[in-house]
Nucleic acid binder design. Sequence first.
DNA 1: CTGAAAGCGCTAACAC
DNA 2: GTGTTAGCGCTTTCAG
Lengths: 340, 340
Amino acid sequence: MSNVINRKKSRRVTIYEVAKEAGVSLATVSRVINGSEVVKEVTRKKVEEAITHLGYKPNAIAQGLALSKTTTVGLIVPEAGFSYVGQVINGLLDVAKIYKYNIMLHTINEGISDVESIVDDVIKSRVDGVIVYSDRITDRSIALLSQYNIPIVVISNRVSSDNICSVFVDIEKAIFELCSKYLASGVTDIAIVGDHRNINTTAMMLKGAKRAFKDHGLEFDNEITKPKNYHSTFHFLKDYFTDHKHQLVIANRDSQAMAVLNAARENGIRVPDEMEIVGVIDTKYNSMMRPQISSFSIPSYDLGAVSMRLLTKMLDAEEITDKEKCLKYLFTNRQTTKLD
Amino acid sequence: MSNVINRKKSRRVTIYEVAKEAGVSLATVSRVINGSEVVKEVTRKKVEEAITHLGYKPNAIAQGLALSKTTTVGLIVPEAGFSYVGQVINGLLDVAKIYKYNIMLHTINEGISDVESIVDDVIKSRVDGVIVYSDRITDRSIALLSQYNIPIVVISNRVSSDNICSVFVDIEKAIFELCSKYLASGVTDIAIVGDHRNINTTAMMLKGAKRAFKDHGLEFDNEITKPKNYHSTFHFLKDYFTDHKHQLVIANRDSQAMAVLNAARENGIRVPDEMEIVGVIDTKYNSMMRPQISSFSIPSYDLGAVSMRLLTKMLDAEEITDKEKCLKYLFTNRQTTKLD
DNA sequence: CTGAAAGCGCTAACAC
DNA sequence: GTGTTAGCGCTTTCAG
């Protein structure tokens, strides 16, 4: 297939060697590499032959230096969050592939020092743009990054400015609608499990619930949060449900929804008869539980794909009609709810 | 914290500007950046002040060009496999951070054309080394890559050569031991669910089972594979278990083990009383099922961490005692087995 | 201890 | 159409 010669320990072939082999100047080689129209057909042929013969591959680093652009974008995701970011990454990579961008992957955790070092790495590596999956709007990484005047797309958070766009799902609305529906049918004992790893999302969920309750002349005040002394949501909920019960419990990540389900059942609470459960972020595991957990399907893949597409637009200085892109969610009624 | 001036639309500051600001030559600036010992203390101070004052950050691309090394490594993982590769990536990134390497992420699917283009990208981006998470030893990506004489670490597969090392878990042995134990206790109706996405792992599992059976004077011939016309393992197994039952079913990925569990139960097969189930790859979801699925814990994080460490050794031309690193697994007995 | 200068591999005017 | 040349930002001899 590829005529690459196995050149052990030999330097990688450069544009000069191709030029010599083809009997042209390096400028011409550069032209054919970059698909310039002005090269005569016969010389192009010669060059192309030399290229495949020598197995030449342009040095992206050198190109990057010469052009001051790297065709790579930095991706920053929360550490240990791959179970729910995986799909986002897939979407992102697929689009990146189309537009010939490479992805530099960085993970970030809570530590501030970490934020600084990530930003450092990102800036030093001279990526053309950055995509940040971040739940926290106040995230220092974004603030720091934006100082460098580099195009940024943030996922899962509504923000925008001169060089920042965002792609997200309107969780507030999702929860509002869900709660409204339940309230309308007389269900008022609704609780939301707070997610300390996704503070902003939790805030949105609460906001949606509060709005729905207010519309019904009620007040929402039922956030369940894991105290620090419990090391897992499940263990906490197991205790919690010994003397608590709600008509509807809403959790963010599917692992939390599962914890709710398991904890409830271990306390003999029948789901969905006595208590209904809804998850927000949906992974494939969500539907593998028995009963299957009803949930919103956040379009994770699209979140990634759209973000990357948006970034390419920013990089090409294309007109951007909407700097804050809100994606549609879908509610899937499974076996932990009694909805129709 | 950082004294970076918000320099809108202005070029990034270069080593020249730092040199001018500090009143020294760029060679000297370069020396202090790279921690050379020979710089006099006072000049170093001057330079450092200029650097922080200007908010200078070295251009890694230019450094890469000058040094012909990029301090980035390419990571190639199977597309859509983040649920079980996530931990590997975390381990890898943590170690990469320590050794100051950046990660360029690529995903790969079955298509051959894809392989070529990935290898192309990897070579063009002049990474210092590559880590490939690949189940298939015959993987063309590795073959192609190795032509370029670049250090490679392969995860989850035993291979090695001049510039290739590998880190993996001895699945064959794991299954051998498990089967031996069951066979010794009289359980002989054992089946293994084939995983079309991980052909090599499946082969290892079968090999282990066969060896155990042979040791007991028996022959193993119980691979369950999803026919092409079923779009999910679960749906196939649901039909399969209407007229099949085994004493022990072993599955590779946890999602498959869950499919086994759910399918069995929907056919009224009691687990573990009538049928026991063991999974191989363990994610957090595995233990969220009820009953909790007994499984091997493949040390995913370590797989990544060790691989990255190994790669740094190759890059530093350190002595490598073992080019094929076999990591320990652990069996966790949960609620789908009757073992003690 | 520090500076001058030659690349690293490639692109993009500007000539011819 | 094609070649020449000046950078892109940094490292590294080699002088001084």
